[in-house]
Design a protein around this nucleic acid. Sequence first.
RNA 1: GGCAGGGUAGCUCAGCUGGUUAGAGCGCAGGACUCAUAAGCCUGAGGUCGGCGGUUCAAGCCCGCCCCCUGCUACCA
Length: 481
Amino acid sequence: MDRYYITTSIPYINGEPHIGHTYELLTADVLARYARQQGKNVILSTGTDEHGGKIQEKAQELGKPIREYADEMSARWRELGSIVNMSNDRFIRTTDAGHEQRAGLIWKSLEKFIYKAKYSGWYCTGCEAFVTESTAKENGGVCPIHNRPYEKIEEDNYFFKLSGFSKAIEEAITSGTFRIVPDTRKNEILGIIKEGVEDVSISRPKEKISWGIPVPDDPDQVMYVWFEALMNYITVLGYPEHQDFKDFWPADVQVIGKDISRFHALIWPGMLMGLGVELPKALYVHGFINIDGKKISKSLGNVVHPREAVEKHGIDALRYYVLRHTPSYGDGDFTWEKFENAYNGELANELGNAVSRTEAMITKYQKGVIGNIPPSEHDSAQYRKYMSEFRFDRALEEIWEQIRGLNQYIDEQKPWVIAKSGDSEHLQQVLAYMCSDLLEVGELLQPFLPDTSARIKEIFSTGVIKPSQTNLFPKTQIKQP
RNA sequence: GGCAGGGUAGCUCAGCUGGUUAGAGCGCAGGACUCAUAAGCCUGAGGUCGGCGGUUCAAGCCCGCCCCCUGCUACCA
């Protein structure tokens, strides 16, 4: 059986989940469901990244044991997946014993590419990263993201010889064995490579940061959180010895946000090459969701939690909005007005109503009996092409074109006129065709709107209408005349 | 500063290797209908395709210069 392995990045648990974080979970979920629909054996993995100084600090601030804080936050992120009906098979925490133990093994395996050296530079605890001298000055010595001063740090670090892999990584990218989508992100990475890739620091002194995985055979150092977190993609499969790893790696696609493409397109491939392990086949880099044109941020007070949207119109409505109206290759925008418009216009009026009128006519004219449903006849090549390109927005547009086509068909055929004419054979053909069309829509919709898809199939697939108790997408706002 | 991608109807965007009257969705205006969630369908208005210049029989698409936006990256101080 074909196997399909897909991962999301694992969010760092220092922050609260919001609607922007659903995009990654949902795109990965769509790909996973699409693969399952094609009969593939799928593993969809997500999780949380929990080590590092920032977590340590945050827990201290709250006066909690770190572990307890991590448990609470991880649970909150796990909940996000269930809120949007994500069908993940795994949920890995970097504090899982298995991950920690395997991370040690991976470090050992990479040792011939690891060396110790003095590192000196400006460091932001918020970013968990060093910045260049120039960046530090440019920002006036204060990190603009976290609004805290950079610290001058001089310390012993282990380094990973990433520079040695740069050529091979470039080749993997240009040849297409390691596909980066969209092209703009690919070109960015190639640009970075062209300018020269340096070795990266992969450890921190334990005296500064204790909340991390110890470096094997050196009690004074812990692994740099990024280096260790990337390993989750294979530790979750039980690298190196477990059968899952042998069966499912390399990943078919890894879904990440545009802010972390550097780690996933350079460091991670370098690590894999060091291990002698294949690179993932594809990296899909998505953008961000803004709210009313502005970046989502606590300080702006514009944070929307996906739960609010789900409470309003249900899970599939949120999934629909996020997947259709966030450009797959760019940034999206959420406003309640846009959400309402998409819900009322596209889900309720176009899809919901098409289902409703079809069901009603068959019930009214044929006592619910559909009869023979002809096979679907639409060409789904374009849809499949979009899916292979991770163009979820376009794929949904394709489906809606078909839904519009159905509504037009109904108005052209005028089944209510045929019914009056008494040509029952013709009427049956027209109504059955409508069902066929809707069942096809339901099939295409399955990866995106699993509940809606199931309901459509339930109503029409048996040859006799199974009456729906409620409308698919009830309208909540009635326009005043 | 360098590299990359953009600037097309009120809004969000599509326009393949240059070729008849520049497209879609939303919004707006009008119309015909009634199966349906007062939904759906039809018609229409609306664009000097960022600016200037050039190549061509012909440019939104090619070339030059300029303005603006976004991303990555560098440097100065």
